[in-house]
């Protein structure tokens, strides 16, 4: 047989370490990691204070919401779908949080309301997609309009958040030696960890990959395709709501103009993180790295000072192009 391997156990541990080459499925994520390290090194060489570990921690803090958004988007894209509604759901979440707090709700009730809304929206979109065969992008486009419209329905004006619990939560920091990290970042990392576990070690997670690989095969294998397909949109909706909460902690206001185009950032982060847009391949940790790459480009540009912020979008687009084209050729060769 073509790929017969040595019997595991016959080689010594050292042999295995020495001859270790990562399986091809990890190449994209390693490329992203190398890109991140490269950019970090570049910054460290060019700008004073860039190589400070706190820069890395700040990256996590500043992009906590995007990380969570990327987690939900990863689930959806892994099944071969897409979710355009997440930016609007973030805006809606900030607005629900701000409005309910303004109305005097307890912060916990407010948080519950936000998470519930996002989840239900995700559920509705998932049902439309699976049971009526509506293309994911058009169903989530409806979600985009719906969530944005609901945001305006609640308030056209910006509402600031002054609730004590929220502000405390927003600035709550944990010190690691002389460096600090905010709770929001820890929540984001926890989300990544849970998602990674679900994707790697549960039947639901493996079914997500199976659907992305071949939905008809998954069906013929007797897997729970309907449940899983709807499930990923529920997860994406929940993650968008959670991201919205983190965003409202970050920005301490609810505004219907928040997070316009954020779905594009999330999609870009997922793709740059090595997830195949056609589904089936990718890791949630890659999406975390994708967010970090986008974040560090932002930081580099702000350290530089002479470059304008629009370069972020152009560079993001170029990275997207590079990843999409390379993936295209990689998958074409395989088939």
């Amino acid at each position: 047989m073509s790929t017969a391997t040595v019997n595991p156990g016959s080689a010594s541990t050292w042999d295995r370490v020495r001859s270790f080459t990562p399986p091809p499925r990890y190449y994209p994520i390693l490329a992203t990691l190398a890109l991140f390290i490269g950019l970090f090194g570049l910054g460290g060489m060019r700008y004073e204070g860039f190589s400070d570990p706190q820069v890395l921690l700040s990256l996590l803090i500043d992009n906590a919401f995007l990380i969570v958004l990327g987690v939900g988007m990863t689930f959806v894209i892994l099944t071969g779908g897409i979710d355009l509604s997440v930016g609007s759901v973030v805006a809606l979440s900030t607005m629900i949080a701000a409005k309910t707090l303004q109305m005097g709700w307890s912060p916990y009730a407010s948080i519950t309301a936000v998470l519930l809304t996002g989840t239900v929206l995700g559920l509705l979109m998932g049902l439309l997609i699976h049971y009526f065969d509506i293309q994911p992008f058009i169903a989530t486009l409806a979600g985009l309009f719906l969530a944005r419209g609901l945001t305006y329905l609640i308030s056209v004006e910006s509402i600031s958040i002054s609730d004590d619990t929220f502000t405390q939560l927003a600035f709550k920091t944990v010190y690691i030696g002389e460096y600090y990290i905010r709770w929001t970042a820890i929540i984001a990392l926890a989300t990544v960890a849970i998602a990674a576990f679900v994707l790697a070690r549960t039947r639901f997670g493996r079914t997500v990959y199976a659907i992305g690989g071949s939905e008809s095969s998954a069906m013929l294998m007797g897997l729970r395709v309907a449940f899983t397909k709807v499930g990923v949109y529920v997860i994406s909706g929940f993650c968008a709501a959670l991201a919205g909460l983190l965003f409202s902690l970050y920005i301490l206001s609810g505004n219907s103009l928040h997070a316009i185009g954020m779905e594009l950032d999330a999609i870009a982060a997922v793709v740059i993180g090595g997830t195949l847009l056609t589904g089936g391949r990718g890791y949630v940790v890659g999406s975390l790295l994708g967010v970090m790459v986008l974040g560090i480009i932002k930081t580099l540009i702000s350290f530089d000072g002479t470059l304008s912020s629009y370069w972020i979008r152009i560079i993001t687009g170029l990275l997207l192009l590079a990843f999409v084209v390379v993936q295209r050729f990689a998958t074409r060769r395989r088939s």
Partner: peptide
């Protein structure tokens, strides 16, 4: 077993054999 292999190309051989009935320990595969 169908004419076109009805498995998922992107997962491992073991997973393709076990999808939907993976052995679990403490709830995790």
């Amino acid at each position: 077993v169908y004419q076109e292999v009805n498995l998922v190309p992107n997962l491992t051989v073991a997973e393709n054999m076990m999808l939907g009935r993976e052995p679990r320990r403490f709830g995790a595969i």
